[in-house]
């Protein structure tokens, strides 16, 4: 599904991602871990064309992603969530999901006239959104602004908004960060379900969450891949241990999470 070769991202003189290779098959859940500043979010941003790549190649399902503009990536089957749930507060929960279907729908200015084809499209999109919202137990909140939702629900909605377009590759940036223990299982089930239909690449620090669901973990540090393997295998990798224990504040926090 995803084939990234030699991906390098630079911010001025800083090399945020350094010649990284990453391959992800058609289905399954794959995790990116690493201390803060390791370049995980930058990699996700690069794969979704939010930031530009200095060198390297990225192909999704054979399509060269680097040829695409940021808004074309979703049509190529790449959808993403955001670390801080970048939702649209002026829209309702339901409308947030409908924006996720933007590139599948075609209604333009004729929407102002509510033409029959507009109504058809709207109806079909709402049916899909309703199904997903019911699945996630968010249906009752459909008319609220996401700004009025608890943070955990916002994160859930953020993932749902990426999921509704039925992507081939789903990029999730710390989907569980900020969730309470009570909220975690619902999102976990949702992501596990997605992992059976498409490839999920997610940033996650909690090994215990990953052990149940992730097929493979890629560990990054200073923009490079330092280890790769099963969650339990990577956890014992001496290089990984050294990078986590040796980086001070962040390292300790993350080791504690392990």
């Amino acid at each position: 599904m995803l084939e990234a070769r030699g991906v390098t991202v630079r911010f001025g003189g800083l090399v945020a991602v350094d010649r990284l290779d990453l391959e992800v098959p058609d289905t399954g859940i794959f995790a990116l871990v690493g201390p803060n500043g390791a370049g995980k979010t930058t990699l996700i941003n690069a794969l979704s064309r939010v930031c530009s790549i200095a060198s390297g190649s990225v192909r999704v399902n054979g399509t060269d992603v680097l040829e695409l503009l940021p808004h074309q990536v979703v049509s190529a089957g790449v959808a993403r969530s955001f670390q801080r749930a970048e939702l649209f507060p002026t829209l309702t929960v339901l409308e947030n999901l409908l924006v996720g279907l933007h590139s599948e729908m075609t209604t333009g200015l004729e929407g102002a006239l509510m033409t029959p084809s507009t109504r058809r499209q709207e109806k079909a999109a709402r049916v899909r959104a309703e199904r997903l919202l019911r699945e996630l137990n968010l249906w009752e909140l459909r008319d609220f602004s996401p700004a009025d939702l608890p943070y955990g629900h916002q994160k859930l909605l953020d993932v749902a908004r990426a999921l509704i377009s039925e992507p081939k590759l789903l990029l999730l940036d710390e989907p569980f960060a900020g969730l309470t223990e009570a909220e975690t299982p619902r999102l976990l089930a949702c992501i596990a379900g997605a992992g059976r239909r498409c490839a999920v690449l997610m940033i996650e620090h909690h090994f215990e969450l990953l052990e149940g669901i992730a097929e493979r973990v890629t560990v990054m540090n200073f923009g490079r891949k330092i280890a790769e393997g099963s969650p339990s295998g990577v956890r014992r990798d001496p290089e990984v241990l050294r990078c986590y224990l040796g980086t001070g504040r962040h390292g300790q926090a993350e080791t504690a999470a392990c």
């Binding site: 993403r80 955001f82 409908l98 924006v99 933007h102 209604t107 709207e122 908004r161």
Partner: peptide, 20 residues
Amino acid sequence: TRLGRAFAAVKDSEIAAAAM
């Protein structure tokens, strides 16, 4: 409809709008 939602999406978060 679709275009009007896109207007609001652009106002609220350009980055998320582009990702959608």
